[in-house]
Design a protein around this nucleic acid. Structure first.
Lengths: 192, 192
DNA sequence: GTCTATAACCTGATAGAC
DNA sequence: GTCTATCAGGTTATAGAC
């Protein structure tokens, strides 16, 4: 991995762990094993590097989601697979994390990938829910857009609960609650 | 309001807006209209002041929640009132915000009020859901603990969606989706 | 209680040598 | 491409006068 790439990866990690304000160029350089001059050669400054890191994280997070959402099985099954996918719930979402960073949200260029990711994810879930409704798998009274928003919120909020409790269990509980409401049947508990 | 109190209030605001790393003693002093010496006379340092601010915010947020959750009406009605209560969704939750702050979560004293708040809120909702189930208002198959976790997650995640979209509408949509799943009826939309 | 002075270190960057 | 030097300003205090 070349220097430029290491700088991007280090920035992605630090933005995830400590946010934009909590991430200094010095810390990025140390983690990447690169010097001051090296960083400023490849990027114009902290915002420029953050843009590269955020764009990459949003793309990758989207790809990981699509792996389950576009997988085999019924609509509800694919949604359940996505929500229950093995996650490090205590680390949270690298994209959702950024919404709490005022400096990121204040910069239209840094904010765009974040907004786009959530729009895509919500629409993707809504499409799947619509499909499940059409197939009779889910109730006919279901509102795809609102339900999709609720499910995405459960994932993001599940991370908050997990961090607050200091345990990934809290994430799993929230997701189980949501899936039970969605499918109206007792969730499989043997899985955990 | 005396100086000590102004320092606490300023810290609460800044922690909410910018998080722990993003909040400097200098910024606190400026907002409180207090000098350096004044701050260090009343508090031992940034962590000490943060503890006072976090404790206060957790107490107040809990009180505001109890106002709806302990209000009149059915269990489902009170939960809906809580979820739909007028909120500045773009500002998010002053307590949930702190879970994203590694320095706060790494300090057991700062972390305690956060953990306690979410435990209380989830248990409070679970009690209400249990009550609704016993009264036949909600389905007999409902799991109070998991459902409560899902609802708290929807609130916290709803803030993430609102900030990502730059619109409080996203919060309302997630909450509507969750309430529809909970009560299994079309949500009232005239309200917005 | 509040003020100013001082300090050691960090932040985010620029300049220019190599 | 990468390095070191330098810089103006911020951070998080401590010390002691008032």
């Amino acid at each position: 991995m070349d220097t430029r790439e290491r700088l991007i990866q280090s920035t992605r990690e630090l933005l995830w762990e400590r946010g934009y304000v909590g991430t200094s160029p010095k810390a990025i350089q140390e983690r990447a094993g690169a010097g001051q001059g090296s960083m400023y050669h490849h990027f114009h400054g902290k915002p420029d590097l953050a843009l590269a890191a955020i764009t990459r994280s949003a793309e990758e997070t989207r790809s990981r989601a699509e792996a389950e959402l576009g997988g085999p099985g019924s609509a509800a099954g694919r949604i359940a697979a996505y929500l229950r996918r093995e996650r490090d719930a205590l680390r949270g979402c690298p994209v959702g994390r950024l919404t709490q960073d005022p400096d990121v949200m204040a910069d239209p260029r840094l904010r765009a990938p974040v907004e786009e990711y959530f729009t895509w994810l919500t629409d993707r879930l809504a499409g799947l829910l619509e499909q499940g409704r059409a197939g009779g798998e889910l109730g006919p009274g279901l509102d795809p857009a609102a339900t999709a928003a609720a499910l995405v919120a459960v994932v993001q909020g599940g991370y908050v609960l997990a961090r607050a409790a200091g345990s990934a269990e809290a994430y799993a509980r929230a997701v189980d609650g949501a899936l039970t409401l969605l499918t109206r049947q007792t969730p499989a508990k043997e899985g955990r």
